[in-house]
Amino acid sequence: MAVDVRQEGRIVTIFDGVSLRLEAGEIVDLVGPSGSGKTTLLRVLARLHSRKAGTLLLRGVSDNDIDPISWRLTVLLVPQKPVTVPGTVRDNLLLPWTLKARAGKAKPSDDELAQLLAFVKLDDVGLARDSNQLSVGQVARVALCRSFLTRPDVLLLDEVDAALDAESADAVAAVVARLARDGTACVRVRHRPPDGLATRRLRLAAGVLSEEAL
């Protein structure tokens, strides 16, 4: 696949001929110098960025045959900057079910939400807490829990643990491990030292994606 981006107004091809394959349940760490296009690659995979050439296949079905919204329900990007919308923690966790794409689908119960919060060590933050009272680390964990609850087939994490303290980063890792056990393929852009979860490591540098020893 090939992708163009704009840098200082000029169009630059950041990578060309990049290809990768993800298996269910694996956790792939994506590393490489900043500016090499890791974020762009994740966005392309979630169809949140244009590409010049290349095809995406999901279980053998071409992206031409899947509408972008259905694609994103299955291939879920968790962006680098976590955000909450105005409302309570519960509102934020149930945000995906307020969208037309999931209208009428069963949403998680308060019990499930509370259990998940406890799992990421947010038990002291109630479901009724106003989202703008949360710290950066708490927002990141709420945003990840929100993605976790939608049970995607592919989860793309863009440095979600970058700004976190060790405890929050461990909680994030635990959530990822749990999803992978249930069959979700996870790709993590990370700058932290390896945490032993990854099954593979890929390096993106100077437009080339290569497999690296763990």
């Binding site: 949140l48 919204i69 879920l76 962006p79 955000v83 969208l99 794409a101 999931r102 945003a143």
Partner: peptide
């Protein structure tokens, strides 16, 4: 911009 990216990543339409 960040909120819009988060929403579209979760499956929001452009209108949403």
């Amino acid at each position: 911009v960040d909120e819009i990216l988060a929403l579209t990543a979760l499956g929001a339409t452009a209108l949403e």
